[in-house]
Design a binder for these strands. Structure first.
Lengths: 349, 349
DNA sequence: TTGAAAGCGTTACCAG
DNA sequence: CTGGTAACGCTTTCAA
């Protein structure tokens, strides 16, 4: 295990001062080009690696941000991360990632780790309601700039980036109503989930607007763990009950896949006998048969916006930066009651 | 912008020495419990944050690893990352992530950034053949331990974790043959892609074993950019040609989705008239109609193994750690010519 | 049980 | 153009 090479080693072997070596390596102007060349060559020869820790310490400048997500193998979050990393790379920031797997305890550990690692800021999609109060408070107290992604907090001073989930829920439900569906069920997420609640609100809003009754029996709660299984279960339950809906709107595409399975098993035709709308426009949506109508969520764009906000907060100490992405419904066949089957996938270039 | 609090500040405000404060904060035994309590309280009050950079510098101990992937929103890679992060978190390592988006130049930038950031090691899935020679050499020269994921290099000293892609290709093809398909096409990846080539090799091996001809016209090349589109295009081309195959094996599930679209459009029944086998067992596989037979790739497990290897390399300076995950075919309906659905997994020998 | 001082690898400042 | 010195925030060693 050979010792790590430092400026000092280069300096010694060339009989110059450490200062000079530093200058050469940092492309300063006040140095003899000759000396500079010699130093660079020597550095290369000795496989010198710059120690960013020492530099940061000395300059009191830190170039990393922390990203905290509930789960990175979830397609949406991975696109958010992609967006963040894209911008971060351009700005020369290092991206440290932590996955909470929905555990608030783990979230806290990650935050603490990030803080002592001197991250300049944090982009976080809080794991649940509870963490909004506790863990964010930790960041606030320690004065770490942070941007909330997808799940805003209740504090008006916080900066966030999110979707208009209320309108998303509204558009989805309205679309089903306009297609002629009369009895629309909603499979939602857990009660503490802000997003799920927003979509639920939109759902109810649409029903009200069209004077349809809100039937609590048609509202089911999935627990986020296995959407597919929950979708399947609740759909069976709904379709076999006396109070049978003719359409189902689900809080995630994942749950919608379960709806498909159940419908298939019960030989119920989508969309003729059962309209389905999902949420997120995940990869599977287009591949389901029939393709799933869903609400778009461009995660990558959101990640980029989050990074921009964070940078503004870090540099200009801005706060209360807020951006709400408009909800957009992507209509495919699963919700077109009077559909003639038409494959409208685009295979451009 | 209030100044960051350091040991010195706590020491001063309590009239003790920096050493004592350090001791208190690090739970050393040789300190008066009284003093310790006072210090801890003060630290809390002043919102002290430990500076890991200074600690690392002083102790010459660094606790972060770098992970370099071609693309993180690709499901497989995101599960690999998940596996890595899981283990890393338990071992108290920070995970810094870089996405090359398949650019070898970007890969190099990321490696250089990671090196100066004193990562203890790197887990990398190289972006292409070229980078295997260039960019890995950089890591070797600077003596950074690294583990290759999914795409091994040619250097026998390197440690890696990969799948048995040859056997994967073999099993997939053999299965189709055994199902009674006679003319099996293969849609592969780019020529430089080691993995694609391995699967191709397995494909050919199976054909040979069963004395089927290898027809280069039935081998198509997708460029990794839009698998779905390529799958669609090539499938159309293949199915409309005189030399029409009765089964298609694709190097990724993504491409297989394109096969489905084309088959649907041409009203060709899967699996009766066209057997299809994909690769990766991605999320969509089960949701396609009919569900797609594919070769499993448990990314998370692979990520965990990679981290374990890396840690062994870092700590014990081990090298040439190699693990090849067995290929396992997951049989679903898309390949069952005389299908009654029976889900079972087949192991290779 | 406590403190003073050295030093990790680097850069900034000032002098020459 | 070059070099000496101090300092970044912390831990370690040695001495009290």
């Amino acid at each position: 295990m050979s010792k790590r090479i430092g400026l000092k080693d280069i300096a010694k072997s060339l009989n110059v001062s450490v200062t000079t070596v530093s200058r050469a390596l940092n492309d300063k102007f006040d140095i003899n080009p000759e000396t500079r060349k010699r130093i660079l060559a020597k550095a290369e020869e000795l496989n010198y690696r710059r120690n960013a820790y020492a530099v940061s310490l000395r300059k009191n400048e830190y170039f990393s941000i922390g990203v905290i997500l509930p789960s990175i193998d979830h397609y949406f979050f991975s696109t958010v991360l992609k967006g963040i990393m894209n911008k971060a790379h351009m700005a020369n920031y290092l991206v440290i990632v932590g996955e909470t797997t929905h555990y608030i305890q783990k979230e806290q550990e990650i935050i603490e780790q990030f803080i002592s690692h001197c991250v300049s800021g944090v982009i976080i999609s809080p794991s649940n309601q509870n963490s909004l109060t506790n863990n964010l408070e930790l960041l606030r107290r320690k004065r770490i700039p942070y941007i909330l992604v997808d799940r805003p907090s209740l504090d008006v001073n916080d900066s966030f980036v999110k979707y208009d989930d209320i309108n998303g829920g509204f558009l989805a439900t309205q679309h089903l109503i306009e297609q002629g569906f009369k009895k629309i069920a909603f499979i939602k997420g857990l009660d503490y989930c802000v997003i799920s609640n927003a979509r639920l609100e939109g759902y109810k809003k649409a029903l009200k607007k069209y004077n349809l009754p809100i039937d609590e029996d048609l509202i089911k709660t999935s627990n986020h763990m296995d959407g597919n299984a929950d979708g399947y279960l609740y759909t069976r339950q709904l379709l076999l009950s006396a109070n049978k809906p003719d359409a189902i709107f689900t809080v995630t595409d994942d749950i919608a896949t379960g709806v498909y399975s159940a419908a298939k098993e019960l030989k119920i035709n989508i969309p003729k006998d059962l309209g389905v709308v999902g949420y997120s426009d995940s990869k599977i949506a287009t591949h389901l048969d029939p393709p799933l109508t869903t609400v778009e969520q461009p995660g990558s764009e959101m990640g980029e916006q989050a990074f921009d906000f964070l940078q503004q907060t870090i540099i200009k100490n801005n706060s209360q930066l807020k951006r709400i992405f408009e909800a957009r419904l992507i209509i495919r066949e699963s919700s077109l009651k009077s559909a003639k089957l038409k494959v409208h996938k685009q295979h451009s270039n």
